[in-house]
Amino acid sequence: MNHTSLKIFEVVAEEMSIIKAAKRLGRVQSNITTRIQQLEQELDVQLFIRESKKLKLSPQGKQFLVYTKKLLSLAEEARQSLHPQQPGGIFSIGSMECTAASRLSAPLATFSRTCPEVKLNLTMMPTRQLTERVQQSELDCALVALPVIAGKSVQCPEDLHNLPLFVENLTLLLPASMSHVNKLEDITVGRLAAFKEGCTYRDLARKLLEKASAQGGGIQIQDVASYHSMMACVASGTYICLLPESVVDLLQLPEGLKRIDAGSAVTHLIWRKDFASPALEQLCRIMHETSNLDGAQQQALG
């Protein structure tokens, strides 16, 4: 079992296709197949289940993939540690859609200029899924919205560091049919359009609507995949959505929508406590410089 075999296994597991993995790695298909077979023989387990020319991970394959990602991440961290003044290699960042849209363009451009030898991979997902991927070493770090508790602390897993970066003022967008609504307490009905389970803003909006409408767990939620589809739902006249104002300012809102203040949330950069790299240090420095929090606020929320 060597680094190359582990990398091939990781790519095949991600693509679930020998053909796609071979193309991505620049290798012939027979070489990919042989490497996987050799790895399975060495481990004495079946890593993939082959059904009707389709691949899926076996239970042992799923378990081994977790360790594979950790080993590859550790190897990359070790390589970078030998050249602390010259960040390089692959650096995987996760981000919420809203943060990527409203906060990342300038910092990532600066990072690219500062660390030209680093190959940056950006993945966008809801907070819960991003957090899990960081914990499983599939991502080096991620920008997530962590719930605030009592106005001063956050629910951050113990195995992760977190750096508070942005306070996001939140806005509930209501359709024109609810133009008479002026505050949360006035909302009596309404369905929620939101990103899938795992999104912090989805959870915050659901709790706000349940409290305002006294519907308990009866809020209907429509899963959407983009802000454009979210806006379409609200424009239809029957849905409500919750967004950071920084994102609202980027969108072309349908005419007549009502905006209601819905509090705030804090975006954090998270990474594993056992992970360190020159690229991460540079990103932390750059993101800190763009933060809208002062030192005291960061300490209180960290």
Score class of each variant (00 low, 15 high):
Y67A: 09
V11Y: 01
N31M: 11
E42W: 02
L43F: 09
L25E: 04
S30R: 11
V12M: 00
P59M: 10
Q41Y: 01
I18N: 02
L57V: 07
I49V: 13
M16E: 11
Y67E: 13
L43K: 12
A21D: 03
F48G: 08
N31W: 07
I32P: 03
A13R: 01
I49L: 14
N31Y: 14
I36Y: 01
R27G: 03
I49Y: 01
E10I: 01
T68H: 00
E51L: 10
R35D: 13
T68R: 00
K62H: 07
Q38Y: 00
T68C: 15
K23P: 01
I32D: 01
V12F: 02
T34A: 14
L47R: 06
N31E: 13
Q46M: 08
E51H: 10
D44M: 09
L65R: 04
E42F: 08
Q37K: 14
K62T: 08
K23L: 14
L25N: 05
G26A: 12
G26W: 06
L57Y: 00
I18W: 10
K54R: 15
L65A: 07
Q41M: 08
E14A: 14
Q46K: 12
S52P: 00
Q29G: 06
V66H: 10
N31D: 12
G26C: 12
L25T: 06
P59E: 11
V11D: 00
F64S: 04
R24T: 14
Q37A: 14
L65P: 05
A22L: 05
E14M: 09
Q38M: 08
Q60E: 15
V11F: 00
K53E: 09
L25D: 04
V12W: 00
K53R: 15
R27L: 15
R24N: 10
E42M: 09
V66K: 14
F9N: 03
L65G: 07
L65M: 08
E10N: 06
K69V: 05
R35Q: 14
E14V: 01
S52W: 00
E51I: 12
R24F: 02
G26M: 12
V45L: 08
K23W: 02
K69T: 05
I18G: 03
E42Y: 08
G26D: 11
K20P: 05
T68N: 11
Q46S: 14
A21H: 02
F48N: 06
E10S: 10
K69Y: 04
K69W: 02
Q60I: 03
L55M: 04
Q29L: 02
F64C: 02
Q29T: 15
V66E: 14
T33G: 00
G26E: 11
S52N: 13
A13Y: 01
D44F: 04
A22I: 07
L57A: 05
Y67F: 11
Q38V: 04
N31G: 11
F64W: 11
Q38C: 06
I19N: 10
T68V: 15
I19D: 09
